[in-house]
């Protein structure tokens, strides 16, 4: 089985967000970058499936050279090789075009990725890639088993879950608890250094332009209500905040 896992190189969930150059650029100073947490689930499941069924896991990242630290970590976790499309991932459509372009050159049985990137949170890349390749896309997938050429999955829906089945190939957006996060061991880290990492140039161009960034207005001071007068909260929510 050939699996392609698309990963994002994103600021850590605890990173302080700020902008520079007249609010036109994200301020990377002091920010720790990680593999997107949803992508980690996708990668971990891909490595488990490889262990069960054999095959290969290729990691794909659309990003600049600074992504390579995170890509090496994915190789250490158990991916066999990696491809980096050398460009800034500026637009969902643009990123999807890169993935579809790479995927169209090989016959992947599964294209896995996180349900969304945690920087832009659009959650649309899997659907775009599925349509560009003319194959089904499903998200958020929380359980994935492969039986012959058929994927048996559980997908989260509003207020519950849905069991679905479909023939491979498929594009899936993943989320917990599809797999336990894998942590690289020393052997994995050593072998990751020599695993192939191919760098290719992008194709096409995006359909949106991000012009400016802004931070939310600072929150006003919290109004504390003594516990013994907790009932007053209801009156405040009704008459002051006007949300009840």
């Amino acid at each position: 089985m050939k699996i392609l896992v698309c990963i994002t190189n994103v600021p850590d969930t605890t990173a302080k967000i700020s902008f520079i150059d007249g609010d036109t650029k994200f301020n990377k100073t002091g920010v720790q970058y990680i593999c997107g947490p949803y992508d980690d689930y996708a990668l971990s499941r891909a490595v488990e499936l490889k262990e069960q069924h054999g095959g290969t896991v290729t990691v794909l990242n659309v990003g600049e050279a600074e992504s390579e630290q995170v890509i090496r970590k994915c190789l250490a976790i158990g991916a066999d090789d990696a491809i980096r499309v050398n460009t800034e991932p500026t637009d969902s459509y643009f990123v999807a075009e890169q993935i579809a372009h790479i995927a169209s050159q090989e016959n992947y049985d599964l294209i896995l990725m996180g349900r969304e990137s945690i920087d832009f949170n659009s959650g649309v890349v899997h659907g775009l890639v599925g349509e560009m390749l003319g194959i089904p896309s499903l998200s958020p997938v929380m359980k994935l088993e492969i039986d012959g050429g058929v994927a048996k999955m559980t997908r989260e829906i509003e207020g519950g879950k849905e069991d679905v089945e479909a023939s491979l190939p498929l594009v899936l957006g993943c989320q917990e608890p599809i797999a336990e996060w894998k942590i690289p061991n020393m052997r994995g880290i050593m072998s990751a250094r020599t695993k192939p990492l191919k760098v290719v140039e992008p194709v096409g161009s995006g359909l949106t332009i991000t012009e400016k960034y802004a931070l939310p207005a600072p929150k006003g001071a919290v109004k504390m209500i003594p516990a013994e007068e907790a009932e007053k909260l209801i009156d405040l929510l009704k008459n002051e905040a006007k949300v009840l």
Binding site: S92, Y93, N121, S122, H126, G127, E131
Partner: peptide, 22 residues
């Protein structure tokens, strides 16, 4: 929504339409 994300993405690819979420 989860259905909205999936459907809007595929429609964007079908129509080569700019897509912005959230």
């Amino acid at each position: 929504s989860s259905l909205g994300d999936a459907v809007s993405a595929r429609v964007s690819a079908k129509l080569k339409a700019s897509i912005v979420s959230n």
